[in-house]
Simulated scan of single mutants.
Amino acid sequence: MGPAMKTLQVALIGYGFVGKVFHAPLIAHTEGLNLHTVVSRQPDVVAAAFPQVRIVAEADAAFADPAVDLVVIAAPNSAHAPLAEAALRHGKHVVVDKPFTVTLAEAQSVLAHAERSGRVLSVFQNRRWDADFLTVRKLIASGRLGEVAEFHSHFDRFRPRVADRWRERDEPGGGLWFDLGPHLLDQALQLFGMPQAIFADLAQQRAAAKTVDYFNVLLRYPRRRVVLHAGSLVPASGLRFAVHGTRGSYLKHGLDGQEDRLRAGGMPGEPGWGTDTQPGQLTVDEGGTLRTGSVASVPGDYREYYRGMRAAIMDGRPPPVTPQEALEVMGLIEMGIQSSLERREIAL
């Protein structure tokens, strides 16, 4: 038997939707991590789910606690940068939920704080560990699609009513481009690297919308074209990925089921966790004949992100999402806004 695994003590700032549904259960079910503190103004809600956790009302109490190793920030987007910088000043390692910040300048400032403190900084990009994305990544790498010519990534919803919540208000970091844009941009960069240019159409389609609730974004590469799309008035599309290459196409409908299971109170690691019940369809060119069949999905597991964070802190490995990757996404978020406002393509 080797030495006992050191358990990292984690403080979670924010117990709204993202903190409650994603971060708290993932931290609690990742070996070598312990949910030590939750910063929330709803102590009864937290205590009902995690009775053993220390609950404080202010983030400063978590920052000042010498027992805390890692701070996870799941507060509203506009608070990401100041909270991250404060945690780093207190010598804590930091995970920020996406988007990293609300401006590229803020992102660069947070990164400078991390470099000065010598602490690990990362952004939570859980959708790198979606079953559908892992399957697409494996298929492209295998060469079965040939050289990818077109890549379409959709994350559509049917939410005709505008909810009264900060994500749907006209405030820094609000709207669909900041909510889903970071996921789709990060996945595209993981597959293809930085594009040559971006052309973005950001819109408000619902009558009562106060901020962006639709985007259609084109990333231009030398020959390849990547289209990222999200709408709020899409009752029945269901398309997640369409990938077309010189040897074949892959079509995937339906979302990874991990979020739905977490929303329903499921716990990471349960039987069947991360399996995809709706396999994609692969069409390949076999000597001039197109043949179509289903493709078994690679299982997904969002805990891989937190396992990677633990390895980064304990073993000095690169974090699962590096600060440079976070900066690249923030740069594209800003350029997308500029492109939409100016109605033109922005070269990188």
Results as ranks from 00 to 15, higher is better:
E168V: 02
P222G: 07
D164P: 03
G245K: 01
R165P: 01
S232V: 06
G146R: 03
Q204G: 00
G272E: 14
F192Q: 05
P222H: 11
T277A: 14
S249G: 11
R240I: 14
G146P: 09
A149V: 14
W177Q: 03
F192V: 04
R169E: 14
L184V: 14
F178R: 02
R263T: 10
L255C: 02
R137I: 04
P172L: 04
G245Q: 07
L251Q: 08
R144D: 11
T275D: 08
A236I: 07
L134Y: 09
Q205P: 05
R224W: 15
R261Y: 12
R240E: 15
R247G: 07
S249V: 06
W273K: 03
P235V: 09
R206S: 05
S237H: 12
Q278F: 14
D132C: 05
A264K: 13
G175V: 11
G175H: 06
E147Q: 10
A197M: 08
T135C: 04
L185W: 00
G193I: 04
W177G: 00
E147F: 05
R161C: 06
L180V: 09
D170M: 02
A208G: 01
L233C: 05
A207F: 10
I140Y: 10
R225L: 15
Q205H: 12
L189D: 04
G274K: 00
M267C: 05
G175D: 10
P279N: 10
D276T: 00
D170T: 00
V234M: 10
H253Y: 15
A197C: 08
D260A: 13
F151E: 02
A141T: 08
Q258C: 04
G257P: 15
G248C: 12
R220L: 13
A236V: 09
Y250F: 15
V217R: 01
L219N: 01
G181N: 05
L184E: 03
G143W: 14
G245A: 05
F158H: 14
V243L: 09
F158W: 15
D179Q: 11
E171C: 06
L202N: 02
G173V: 08
R159P: 01
Y250L: 12
L191W: 09
L185K: 00
A188T: 02
F151Q: 03
R165W: 13
L218E: 13
G269R: 09
V226P: 13
L184C: 01
N216R: 09
R247S: 14
G266W: 10
P160A: 01
H183S: 01
Q190E: 13
R240V: 15
F192H: 07
L202W: 09
R165S: 10
R144P: 03
L251H: 14
G193Y: 11
L251W: 10
R165G: 01
Y221L: 00
T275Y: 12
A209R: 02
P222I: 05
G269V: 11
G274E: 03
H152E: 12
G181H: 04
A163V: 11
